[in-house]
Design a protein around this nucleic acid. Sequence first.
DNA 1: TAGATTGTTAATCGATTAACAATC
DNA 2: TAGATTGTTAATCGATTAACAATC
Lengths: 207, 207
Amino acid sequence: MKKSISQATIDRLPLYFRTLRLMEETEINIISSDELGRRLDITPEQIRKDLTTFGQFGKKGIGYDVRELKDRISNILGLQNHWRLAIVGVGHLGGALANYVNFASLGFSVVALLDKNPKIVGTKVNGITVGNISDMKEIISDKAVDIGIITVPATEAQDTADALIAANVKGIWNFAPIKLNVPDNIPLVNEDLSIGLSALSYHMSQN
Amino acid sequence: MKKSISQATIDRLPLYFRTLRLMEETEINIISSDELGRRLDITPEQIRKDLTTFGQFGKKGIGYDVRELKDRISNILGLQNHWRLAIVGVGHLGGALANYVNFASLGFSVVALLDKNPKIVGTKVNGITVGNISDMKEIISDKAVDIGIITVPATEAQDTADALIAANVKGIWNFAPIKLNVPDNIPLVNEDLSIGLSALSYHMSQN
DNA sequence: TAGATTGTTAATCGATTAACAATC
DNA sequence: TAGATTGTTAATCGATTAACAATC
């Protein structure tokens, strides 16, 4: 069995990717773990350790080729798959995500929007017509959706997850503040905004 | 020196809080670490360990009083401070956060919105008139803002953070995908959506 | 009392940091 | 060559899990 890679490492890769892309734009060609670490407040040892989990990308005495490393990380993260997203729940947050420009620059595209509210179904958000949740299976299939984004109220989140899985999405990004039960083979990432805000409150209270 | 409490523990407290509040609503009065763990997919040992970091809240052989534990966690997280929030950058995401109902239920209130775009300044979002960023210092002071939420583009995020700190906010919640430099005494929480989505892409690619 | 469940210490596991040989 | 910097092994640190005495 292949040794599993820590979530901490995986979560740092997007930071490396982001920084490398910025460097590429400013025409920096070579970067050392030291300089990359300085920019991100991560130790160079940590960066080298993270990278060698996936291979040997650097040159001793020189550093890393910015473009090459960026492309390698992009591939490790699977960004070259150009995953297709469906947003379920076109409220304020869902609508904001439908307009979120950074997705495209990471290779994701929002291809479907779904809601159950008849006042929202049929309207256009960022050029996409909102479909009815009751037509989910057909829409997910027609639009070849890979990832379902859940931005419905917590009370409806589990049903939404079940429906998305029945419609054959390959992964779920959940913004509802509730623990979802999904099969082991469906990757699930929770984006619970109340955790970050509560942690901030905690640290502010310590001062 | 007091032994510092791990971020992992702090990040689990909001989950406990959320679940306890749900239980309180359904009139469950007593909960064991076993049952709480079952609902959240966290081991009961982990929960007991987390809680005893802050005190002894349970009764041996019985469990925890739901309401009492909920209130204790609320206090540990500092939610009783009823922090006042200002959102800087009223684009899609900032606007969505201005309308985010879950803040209120955690004791936070959005009291100010700021933007630099003259087309947005002066408009009302969720009943709050958007102020001009150039008046930040005065607005933050007048509205007694505690927390600055950064939803401006990455290129403007550091300047925004500097201005918020100069205006005496006590903490920063940053949604811009960039590493911010802030003084040690200003708690900063980053909410980088591209990390979660990239991690999801990674796990989907492994299948 | 017997059964249940906490609080806490000890053991394990995993992640980060330090050190350094290899080498460009 | 000398200086710089990677890749990797060893040491340390910290978090989770296991075990169990205390006690309701």
